[in-house]
């Protein structure tokens, strides 16, 4: 009983969720990098991990409109879980990754109730507070976490019993890239589902969303938990590729950096985290050569400039949409403001 209009509708929806050649190209490039730059595999792993961390933040900031100043809490707990898991349970990385995901997800579920109520400000404070609480805890519980010295002596077995970590870090990079790719596929699926659509509605106008029968709280709990799970896996990857965890994984600057990464790449289209991670990591590598120790200053300057000049004017998402429209003759999407809610 398909009418022409419903066919148009279905075609439109399919097209919106379809893969673009640009996306495929990006992944091809990422894979090629494993073989093109044999001496830079550690840097590449760093990018992939940061990209995953920023992707997890994008799920809550870009899609649900929840600001967080403490996303490092989930990254850090994932990193510690992976370290402790490999020391005490099993050296198999995939099992450690799964354990980190579960623990971080549980923490996300438990703390999601803190971000349901209140304004942006109380959300900033509670997320910040939770991460500081964890950082303080990791520092104090030296018997478990090694305190300020961190956990060392982490030895990992081959991934799935087959792929050994090599000295140059190529296995580590391909492993991180594979995890990032799979999790991006899942995120893509979520964003283009009815659930993802309802999140967009809640973010844009929660009052109206409620008038469509959407109970916002449950949706926020679910996406916040998924986001925490993603961040936890990013943390686990960091531990597994560097064989080391220190309280630095929970530090405030990590929460701030990941916000910057996401904003550099653009909020709310999933690839912002990846693009931002590339820019940020290369920039940091370059700046710390030029002015070691003081690269924080330049990061700060970039943040200020980014905001003062205007995020949407520099938004890669818009640039990509423009390129895409040129290439494929489709209308360019307008950038999405962070929140259309009055307050």
């Amino acid at each position: 009983m398909s009418t022409p209009h419903s066919q148009i509708a279905a075609a439109f929806l399919r097209r919106k969720a379809a893969w673009s050649p640009l996306e495929a190209g990006l992944w091809g490039l990422a894979l090629a990098a494993a073989f093109l730059f044999p001496s830079q595999q550690l840097l590449l792993s760093e990018i992939a991990i940061l990209a995953l961390f920023a992707l997890s933040l994008d799920l809550i900031v870009g899609y649900a409109g929840i600001l967080s100043l403490g996303h490092a809490a989930f990254f850090g707990i994932g990193a510690y879980t992976a370290g402790l898991f490999s020391l005490h349970v099993s050296a198999e990385p995939l099992a450690g990754l799964a354990a980190s995901a579960v623990v971080a997800g549980l923490l996300g579920l438990a703390t999601s109730f803190l971000v349901l109520r209140g304004s942006d400000l109380t959300r900033l404070m509670t997320t910040f507070g939770v991460s500081m609480l964890l950082a303080e805890g990791a520092n104090q519980a030296a018997w478990l976490t090694g305190g300020a010295d961190g956990l060392s002596g982490i030895l990992l077995g081959p991934i799935a019993g087959t792929f050994d970590f090599d000295l140059w870090g190529r296995t580590g990079y391909l492993y991180s890239l594979a995890v990032l790719f799979i999790l991006l596929l899942v995120a893509r699926r979520i964003v283009h589902s009815p659930f993802g659509l309802s999140l967009k509605a809640i973010k844009r106008n929660s009052r109206r969303a409620a008038m469509l029968g959407i109970a916002p709280n449950r949706r926020i709990v679910v996406i916040y938990t998924i986001s925490a799970l993603y961040a936890g896996m990013a943390g686990a990857l960091l531990t597994q590729t560097t064989s080391f965890v220190s309280p630095d994984v929970l530090a405030f600057h990590r929460s701030a950096d990941v916000l910057l990464v996401l904003v550099l790449g653009g909020v709310g289209y999933l690839y912002g985290g990846i693009i931002g991670a590339v820019i940020f990591t290369l920039l940091r590598a370059w700046l710390s050569v030029v002015t070691p120790q003081y690269w924080m200053f330049w990061i700060g300057l970039i943040l200020v400039a980014l905001v003062v000049i205007g995020r949407d004017r520099l938004d890669p998402a818009r640039a990509i949409a423009l390129v895409r429209s040129r290439l494929l003759g489709r209308p360019a999407a307008k950038p999405v403001p962070l929140s259309e809610d009055g307050r």
């Binding site: 009418t3 509708a9 279905a10 699926r189 979520i190 589902s193 009815p194 659509l197 949706r219 679910v222």
Partner: peptide, 17 residues
């Protein structure tokens, strides 16, 4: 259907029709 996380909108023919 709002709680469906992994089903693409495009596949929800009943709703889109």
């Amino acid at each position: 259907h709002g709680n469906r996380l992994f089903r693409p909108l495009a596949a929800d023919r009943a709703v889109s029709e």
